[in-house]
Design a protein around this nucleic acid. Structure first.
Length: 273
DNA sequence: ACCGGAGCCTGTTAGC
DNA sequence: TGCTAACAGGCTCCGG
């Protein structure tokens, strides 16, 4: 379930517990999560003795820079990372465990098993196609306008395309479109310059708010320490189907676009005439 | 190049 | 209460 703010929150929590640590072991009971390796044994052989030199984020990927390689983790829908003492009891959904040189373990828990782990000397193979970081100077209204031009697809699923801008998911796409006053079914190429500028600003502000609130704990997402974020208390439309819009009182509607639930206020986000 | 749909997994929730 | 279908914050692959 994590999007950019949730992944950023995870990185900030685990970074101080991983920097300078050296991996001493690895275990996995779900080889399919190892995107770059056929089995846990070969993964372990390449990982062990490498030290964590940096911990960051690119889009929704967690990026750990090691001595020789880069370790990437994508949480997908249900992934959760934590650093705990090795003696802490593991539950049945913990599918990967990275042993550290201080008696702790980095654990990857993932009920739906969609998450993926990459260990590679060439992370660009995986990260290279991502669009700009939405909170960086590279993400400009002009960039967004250029990438939306000539796309007739609805703006909502277009925002979920990680090659346009990295890190926006279903919650923040809906929230950004509400903040910008844009109907989710508007063809991307039909937005005028003012709407693109509004959307650009809205994407940034909802993501910044999400980070400040340490993510949205709407289903199962919790921070690495098990505590909840608070962005769920600040959403305007996401999963508020039937409840009155905070701005105008009109009931929030839900539709499905590109197989994803989409929530909007039919009055505040009225289609262009 | 673009776009929609199936599929990957398991757990939870809504509805009868 | 119990069963079933729908749903879940992501993304890849395949085909038109």
């Amino acid at each position: 379930m994590p999007e950019l703010p949730e992944v950023e929150t995870v990185v900030r929590a685990i970074r101080p517990r991983l920097l300078g640590r050296t991996f001493t072991g690895f275990w996995s009971d779900w080889p399919r999560q190892l995107a770059t390796h056929p089995d846990p044994t070969s993964f372990r052989a390449q990982l062990v003795a490498q030290t964590v030199q940096a911990a960051g984020r690119r889009g929704k990927y967690i990026v750990l820079t090691l001595t020789h390689d880069t370790l990437l983790v994508h949480l997908k829908m249900s992934g959760h990372l934590s650093v705990v003492p090795a003696e802490t009891v593991r539950d049945k959904w913990t599918h990967a465990v990275f042993a550290l040189d201080n008696g702790h373990e980095l654990r990857f828990r993932d009920t739906r098993k969609f998450g993926r782990i990459y260990l590679t000397p060439t992370p660009a193979d995986t990260l290279g196609a991502l669009g700009p970081e939405p909170l960086s100077v590279a993400f400009t209204p002009q960039h967004l306008a250029d990438r939306l031009a000539n796309r007739r697809r609805a703006i909502k699923p277009t925002l979920l395309d990680q090659t346009i801008v990295a890190g926006v998911g279903n919650i923040y796409a809906d929230e950004a479109l509400f903040a910008a006053g844009i109907h989710p079914e508007t063809p991307a190429s039909a937005l005028d310059a003012a709407q693109v500028a509004a959307l650009h600003g809205a994407i940034r502000s909802v993501l910044e708010q999400g980070i400040a609130r340490e993510g949205a704990s709407i289903n199962s997402y919790v921070k690495p320490d098990g505590e909840k974020g608070s962005m769920q208390d600040a959403v305007n439309v996401f999963r508020r189907t039937g409840f009155p819009c905070y701005r105008c009182g009109t009931p929030i509607e839900r539709i499905v676009l590109a197989q994803r639930s989409t929530h909007f206020c039919p009055r505040c986000q009225a289609p262009a005439v």
